[in-house]
Amino acid sequence: MSLLPEPSAVPSDLELVHAVRSGETERFEELICRYQARLFVMARRYARREDEVEDIVQEILLKAYTRLETWRGDAPFEHWLMRLGTRICYDFLRQHQRSREITSTELSGDEVDWMECQALPDGRADGKADAARTLVARVLDRLSPASRLVITLLELEDKSVKEVAALTGWSVPVIKVRAFRARLEMKRLIERLDREKYL
């Protein structure tokens, strides 16, 4: 009796991986089609330029191919791929670490308006959602790589600490400490922007 699963209409990840391992390399394309959209979402959280996003996703997929043998099938393929992707995104952040300095002169009029609206009692700035998103992107760009990764996973993707630990390979206490530092770092950046906009 063969240990390989029975072929079905829609092959499972396990079947596809077995096929690629046994030499049918072209079947890796099915795995790419299955997961590339999710990988693009992930990469776009860390890189802004589209050519950088494509490079990240390509690197994740190539590394997945070369390390396919290390997937033992005890966890879903998607989890394994996302873990690999998270590590590559973190490496990208470390390689492209930008200057931590940020000044209010870099902000557009809409971004400053959004911050001012938040200071009002009702704090509404519905028409300036794009400005808020750009402002968040600017602030996140200035965080350290570890802080950015933790904030993105915990606060933007709503993952639990345990999930973040599984994705990053860091221990739960390390993630808690990094999350605390990241929030502090972010608060300081926003404070500075808020102070400077009145100068």
Partner: peptide, 14 residues
């Protein structure tokens, strides 16, 4: 509020 604004807009999956 900034994080809420960011969460409300998920990156494109194109």
């Amino acid at each position: 509020k900034l994080m809420e604004a960011a969460r409300s807009h998920s990156p494109s999956d194109a």
